[in-house]
Nucleic acid binder design. Sequence first.
DNA 1: TGGTAATAGTTGATTTTGTAACTAACAAGG
DNA 2: CCTTGTTAGTTACAAAATCAACTATTACCA
Lengths: 145, 145
Amino acid sequence: MSKDDSFDVQDFLPYLLNQAAEEGSLGFQTVYKERYGLLRTEWRVLFHLGIYGQMTATEIGTRARIHKTKVSRAVQKLNDRRFVERSRSDSDRRVEWLHLTAAGMSAYNDLSAIAQSYDAALQARFCEADIVVFKRVLRHLARLD
Amino acid sequence: MSKDDSFDVQDFLPYLLNQAAEEGSLGFQTVYKERYGLLRTEWRVLFHLGIYGQMTATEIGTRARIHKTKVSRAVQKLNDRRFVERSRSDSDRRVEWLHLTAAGMSAYNDLSAIAQSYDAALQARFCEADIVVFKRVLRHLARLD
DNA sequence: TGGTAATAGTTGATTTTGTAACTAACAAGG
DNA sequence: CCTTGTTAGTTACAAAATCAACTATTACCA
């Protein structure tokens, strides 16, 4: 017996978003996990380097809104696996430029191809007009525009 | 230098969903955290009991897709705080019925009221037609319909 | 019956995360 | 130069999530 029938979790946006996000990443998560033993943050860092090329840890953190300690640890792991190389900047020896190795690039290419087809399969479940609206609202909520 | 310019993380649905979900729960998270010292899972369990009334841990886990160990520990904490009471079923002594105490109900009422206005504020940023589409797609992705 | 499997829920060991404090390098004003 | 403040990134310790193994109870069936 509900105390307040006018409220339903399933209409609560943060709840809906969380459920959809979990459901939506589930399938792809197993790919980068089982195929390359990557964690979610590690995959995210890999993708940013694959897409935007050379970046610093801080830049990645700012762009993806990941805390610097999380980025730091992800970079460490990716470096251990020889997916990422670090090089100190000459002009400012605090900053470290990160870029993918050949192995990292190859993992990125493989995963991004899978990501694209995964994404296409997800989007195929809706009509194009709905996807347009959906993504626009998402981007706005995610503060990406 | 990007290897594959046709791909952008910001168009990748799982990524977008995650960012939006994190952004969207951020504000409300501080409410249940600072006001009642609740964790995300604890809040979710509280809400389910507030809305659907008496339930078992397994039912909550199934409906919200939370792992049973997470539910178990959340119920323990909520029970410690006297927000939830447990009672063994007579017909099957493995199952435990959970329901809110008066204190739990009051916390739920308080939080659900805040949740509703928080939700309304989020939704006010878009036109109604967009919200309708958005929620429909979300529900489908979250496999809630 | 008795044996095997299934279900509800808990506990313990290991990983991962979060918070704060830390080192190192730079910047700017006196 | 020195003090103070800021920025890049790491590390230490506590909190939380995860995974597997566990107890207790019921269900199935030969």
